[in-house]
Design a protein around this nucleic acid. Sequence first.
DNA 1: CTATTTTCATCATTTTACATGATCTCTCGA
DNA 2: TCGAGAGATCATGTAAAATGATGAAAATAG
Lengths: 305, 305
Amino acid sequence: MTSVEIRYLEALRAVAEEGTFTDAAIRLGYSQAAVSQQIQSLESALGHAVFDRPGGPRAVALTPTGRACLRHAEVILDRLDEMRADIDLLHAGLGGRLACGTFQSVSVELLPLIVGRVLGETPDLQIRVVEEDENEPLIARLIAGDLDVTFLAGPVREPMIETIPLGEDPFVVVAAHDEFTRDLSAFPAPMLAGTGIIGESAGTAQSFIEDGLRSVGVTPRYRFQTNDNGAMQAMARTGLAPALMPLLAVNTDDPGVRVLPLDPPIPPRSILLGLPGPALRTLAATRFAQIAADVGRERLAQPAG
Amino acid sequence: MTSVEIRYLEALRAVAEEGTFTDAAIRLGYSQAAVSQQIQSLESALGHAVFDRPGGPRAVALTPTGRACLRHAEVILDRLDEMRADIDLLHAGLGGRLACGTFQSVSVELLPLIVGRVLGETPDLQIRVVEEDENEPLIARLIAGDLDVTFLAGPVREPMIETIPLGEDPFVVVAAHDEFTRDLSAFPAPMLAGTGIIGESAGTAQSFIEDGLRSVGVTPRYRFQTNDNGAMQAMARTGLAPALMPLLAVNTDDPGVRVLPLDPPIPPRSILLGLPGPALRTLAATRFAQIAADVGRERLAQPAG
DNA sequence: CTATTTTCATCATTTTACATGATCTCTCGA
DNA sequence: TCGAGAGATCATGTAAAATGATGAAAATAG
């Protein structure tokens, strides 16, 4: 009891196209007997004849079973070729797919820059972006192979993956442009205790901010919480309270607000790029990481020292 | 240098789904060593690793190459299952396709009746109808395997195919319904010499008619020739000349014409169903032939004796 | 830190499948 | 009736695959 093999399907196609077992054997580089046996194996695997052998010098003809089989066989053989081509492309670094994890503040400015440069080099690469609010699911998906590369925030302790520091993203105060803020060059941290703050709803970044505030003696009190950067900034513009946001997430072209460093400053969040171990790394992912590091050097503050 | 085999793709899928070589081997009914070697063969065929083996009791993980490969492998394996299912269906006579050759006069009444009954039995059968004006291309396509069954007219001498007589289709005169034809029960053949006739343009049927007419002493003289049955009948309705048509092609519900036998009669055309040799015959084609014979007995004149 | 467990790789061996070359058999056409 | 051409069959050597046992690496438990 044998099963269907690629070789049999190739023999089927060759015989169907050549019309004789002998010619098919020549084309495939086998002996006639080999092709005969391969077709017999295929027939025993399927349980039905695929060729009608009229005998004598007449060409063999496909049975209805053979025709049905050939229709599928051609798809299968084409798909195999496609597979090889796909894999070759993947290792040439030109094609394939790249799934990239990210989070809001990175998505605004850094990601488009990086993606733009990557696509400039390899236009046939298909980049898929997955956004999450926290590190944890991004890391999990990277390990699962669901992502090829992902941005991460803050310090990451995870031996299963490799991280590349891209730079630091300071937290800034976004406040309404009014008489009070007009002449400030930094926002006094203690004032936040009185005004309250606008912040993100939850997530890793938010608890990082809260710890930072406490370290400068301020207990955060939220006047408004949202996960949408635009909404946060718009709310700050009304003067309800200042928003405390990562600089990357701020639209600095907005004339209605002032973007100020906090005084005293709280520890900035570091931006990392996570990659799987070398064996699981795409060529495209490696290149993405290089470009991300370049862009980080250009656009992000680098840690002192 | 080995090439990609179905077995390897099955191993790839099993390992990817189970997470370990050992579990995949159990599922596939192989030893662990066998699966290990199959994956190695696949990797050497592709030129790249498909799994990352972290070593120790951790699950293996697909490499990007492996993921690309698996995407295609799943399509290929699904297609193989589909192929088997398709062939099984074909031999259960329930599914598959049936390509049927036909010609105009049969298409009008006989074919819809037969197709209706066949589809009543096997609704999932896909029937494709191919119409030709002559026997010759129909027979050629039947032999080429392009058709599974075909209607044929008149006597056929072709050892490569099998024919089943369905009945006879007499030639009738279709004449305008006027004072002259009102009381006739048969049309006198000699009159056709005076009026001329309306007939088909060319083809096997037409030369058969001409031979028949000559045998009753009439030399055919065409007033109008067309390949469209409706046009022929419409022309006869105007009274230009009587049309000589196979009864099957006549719309007998037309009150504007009288449909009369010829006197003396000319030999009728026999209607046959052509089938390929038994090895090339679909179960559906066999059933089609049985139903066609039934319908023929009900609707066609049977040859004397 | 060692023992244990889990997992995959490796090796030698057996078993199976495969390809070959030499006939056989069949059909058609001369 | 015979030969040419096509596939089937057979015996045989070879290559590939599966096996079972063993080994190595890494995480886990004590």
